[in-house]
Computed example of a mutant assay.
Amino acid sequence: MTLGDGGLSGVEILEAAAEGRLKVLFLWGEDLLCTFPGSVAEKALSALDFLVVQDVYLTPSAKKAHLVLPALTPAEKEGSYTNCEGRVQVVRKALEPPEGLMETGVLLREIASYMGKEWEARSSKEVFSEIKGKVAPYAQVDPSEGGFRGSDEPLKAVFQPPEGADLQEEKGYPYILMIEGLFHNHLLGLGGERRDKGLGAIVPGAYLEMNEEDAKELAVENGDKVKVISPWGEVVVETKVGRDIRKGVLSLFTGLYDVDGCALVGEVDPSSKVPSFAKIPVRVERQ
């Protein structure tokens, strides 16, 4: 899936803001300081003349905003999500939102009206039908009567690997890293701001999983702390040694955002223009 002419990807929007080419930004339900490489997002948000954030929580990004607007929770709206596996999942409204709280689509139409543009009001089903007509992989998902029917199989979309991700061993990065999370940061917060204390009691902390042979070569055992270094940053994390991961491949589990995996990310997918959280070249140093 590629971007249409004239639009910018998330990374390109941040670059434009940091360079002063973009003055105003409106964020919906996204905490850029958690989901994009931190230094890039920090510089971009700080350079804006006006930042508006619409969200359920006062996230780190929202704290930088000039204006914060309330958003609907998933239980108060309908539509669909496409998860990381490519499956379309249906969301149906279970609760009526508080009086005066607008859906994002309604709010956008109001803003457009103030700017002299009249946008047609459309239902979630109508919007999804338009997506089907413009984005080929969604053609296999059929809206059913009274709502949506989620996809039984993942959407078939092709994403290219980041250019330059295959840094050779002679350049000092002999391992390939994958970064895995667990929950969306909206449910958690960061550090001392964590909103759900119960999850911290049952979810393991951050760790780096590696193959037994790699651990032996590095003289690393379970629980040892190591420094993971990419061309763009570094983190310190405990290790977990096992047989279920291939030699030469590492997996960083960020836990409840106990470590900043974004610090290791630099390359973007050349097609989707989003950061790559897989196939990151790294080296490991025992602490």
Rank of each mutant, 00 (worst) to 15 (best):
T73C: 14
E99F: 11
S113T: 14
F128Q: 00
V158T: 14
P137S: 02
Y81Q: 10
Q168E: 14
L69K: 02
K93H: 00
I131Y: 07
H186T: 11
T104E: 12
E110V: 04
A157K: 07
V90Q: 02
P137L: 04
E153S: 15
M178I: 15
Q89M: 14
C84K: 08
G189L: 05
V106Y: 10
I131Q: 01
P137M: 03
S144Y: 10
G100H: 04
K117Q: 13
S124L: 02
L190Q: 06
G133A: 14
K171H: 13
M115F: 11
K125H: 09
E78M: 04
I176F: 11
V158F: 14
V158Y: 15
Q140Y: 10
A165W: 09
V158G: 13
F183V: 12
V127W: 05
K132C: 12
L69I: 07
A121T: 07
A165E: 03
L190M: 12
N185P: 13
E180R: 10
F159H: 06
N83R: 06
T73G: 12
K156Q: 13
A165P: 05
T82N: 01
A71K: 00
Y114W: 13
E145H: 12
L187S: 08
S113C: 10
R92Y: 09
Y81K: 08
K134H: 05
L177G: 01
G150I: 05
P143R: 03
V90H: 02
R109L: 05
I111C: 02
A139T: 08
G100K: 00
K171I: 07
T73D: 14
L69V: 08
G192I: 08
S124A: 10
F148I: 00
G189I: 05
G191T: 00
Y173A: 04
F148Y: 01
G172K: 04
G146Y: 05
K125I: 13
Y138V: 03
K132N: 13
G105V: 01
G105F: 02
A139L: 09
V127K: 06
S151A: 05
L72K: 06
G116N: 04
P162I: 02
F128S: 01
R194F: 04
R149I: 09
L67F: 04
G189P: 02
L101S: 01
S124K: 03
G79Y: 00
G86Y: 07
E169S: 12
I111V: 08
E169W: 06
E145F: 12
S80N: 06
S151G: 05
E170C: 08
E163L: 09
A157W: 09
E120R: 08
F159C: 07
E118F: 03
F128P: 01
K134S: 12
W119D: 09
E85G: 14
L187T: 07
E126Y: 09
R122M: 10
L177C: 04
E163V: 11
R92N: 10
W119H: 11
A165F: 07
P97K: 05
Q160D: 09
R149K: 11
Y138G: 00
E96P: 11
S124Y: 05
G146V: 03
D152E: 14
G192N: 12
Y114R: 14
P74A: 08
F183W: 11
A94C: 12
T104Q: 09
L182A: 08
R87S: 06
G146K: 04
D152H: 13
N185Y: 14
L167Y: 06
Q140M: 13
A112L: 12
E120C: 05
Y175D: 00
P70I: 00
Y138F: 14
A71L: 05
E96Y: 15
L190W: 10
W119K: 14
